[in-house]
Amino acid sequence: MKTYIISILVADEPGVLLKLCGLFVRRGFNINTIAVGSTEKKGLSRIMITLNSDGKKITQLKKQLIKVIDVVGVSDLTENTIVEELCLIKLGINGEKERDEIINNVNLFKAKIIDINKTNIIIQITDRPNKIKNFIDVLSDYEIVKITRTGTVAIKDIGTNNN
């Protein structure tokens, strides 16, 4: 089992997300993360999905996806890609010492403080999913109130030959 990142370019039609999610369920795939947004092309959206599977099943999944009428293209962004995810974390603060420790960790991870008061702090981190995981692990020593994540987005890297 390996984590794959599949990017699906779709026509921005009503129900297209339902059609794709239905397909994942029917074919027995479990979605880890999903992110949907507009693209450089008008009328087209990009759906980015990460899931655990094996190579043969992923090949079959890609072929099933491209059959959906509203799907323009499917690409596998598992290798040679820039991968980012945005995560918002709300923590409870119990005393100044704890606050300073938290801020120290925020700086270590190059995260960002969005809002803070005496009792709570909201942190934003945009990074690779595994680094976000490490950050959350570190913060688990404190009072985590809420975590919300966008799901992974990825883009093919520029490469050495610019191709």
Binding site: G15, L18, K19, G22, I69
Partner: peptide, 12 residues
């Protein structure tokens, strides 16, 4: 019916 016919049609 958009939901119900989804898995048994080519498109709706």
């Amino acid at each position: 019916m958009m939901g119900i016919t989804l898995p048994i049609t080519k498109h709706n």
